[in-house]
Simulated scan of single mutants.
Amino acid sequence: MLATLSLLPLPLASCGAAATGDNAQGERPFTIEEMGQFEEPWAMDFDEPTGALLVTEKAGTMRLRLADGRMGRVTGLPKVDYGGQGGLGDVIFAPGQSGPTLDGREIYFSWAEAGKGDTRGAAVGRATLSCPEETACTLDDLKVIWRQSLKVTGRGHFSHRLAFSPDGQFLFVSSGERQKFTPAQDLTNNLGSIVRLLPDGSPAPGNPWADKGAPTNQIWSFGHRNVLGLAFDPQGRLWDLEHGPAGGDELNLVKPGRNYGWPLVSNGDHYDGRPIPRHDTRPDLAAPAISWNPVIAPGDFIFYTGEAFPAWRGQALIAAMVDPGIVRVRIDGDIDVDKGFEEARYSFDKRIREIEQAPDGTIWLLEDGKQRNSGKLLKLSPVTK
Rank of each mutant, 00 (worst) to 15 (best):
A231K: 11
L228S: 12
W239D: 00
H224S: 05
T216H: 13
D211P: 13
N217W: 07
F222I: 05
R225Q: 05
T216C: 14
N226L: 14
R225D: 05
H243E: 00
A231L: 09
H243M: 00
D233F: 08
I219N: 12
E242P: 04
I219L: 09
L241G: 12
D240M: 09
G213M: 10
S221C: 09
N226M: 13
F222R: 15
Q218F: 07
W220I: 03
A231N: 12
V227H: 07
D211L: 14
Q235A: 14
H243S: 00
F222Y: 15
K212P: 08
D233A: 06
D233T: 04
L228I: 10
G236M: 09
L241H: 07
R225P: 08
G229D: 10
D211C: 12
I219Q: 11
G236Q: 08
G223P: 05
W220V: 03
N217D: 12
D211E: 13
H224W: 04
K212Q: 15
R225V: 04
F232Y: 09
L238R: 01
Q218W: 06
D211M: 14
G213Q: 12
R237Y: 05
K212N: 11
H243R: 00
T216W: 08
L241V: 06
S221N: 08
Q218A: 08
H224C: 04
P215G: 00
R237T: 03
D233Q: 04
Q218M: 12
H224T: 04
R237A: 08
T216L: 11
G223Y: 01
L238M: 02
F232E: 05
I219H: 13
G223T: 03
D233M: 07
D240Q: 10
T216N: 13
D233Y: 07
Q235N: 10
N226C: 14
F222D: 09
I219Y: 11
D233P: 04
F232D: 03
L230R: 07
N217G: 01
W239S: 00
P215F: 02
P215I: 01
V227G: 06
H243K: 00
A231I: 06
L238S: 01
W220Q: 04
G229R: 12
N217I: 04
D233C: 08
I219W: 10
F232M: 04
I219A: 14
I219F: 10
W239F: 00
L238I: 01
D211G: 15
G229Y: 10
T216S: 15
L241W: 02
W239C: 00
L230I: 02
Q235D: 12
H224G: 06
W220A: 07
L228N: 12
R225L: 05
R225Y: 03
H224M: 05
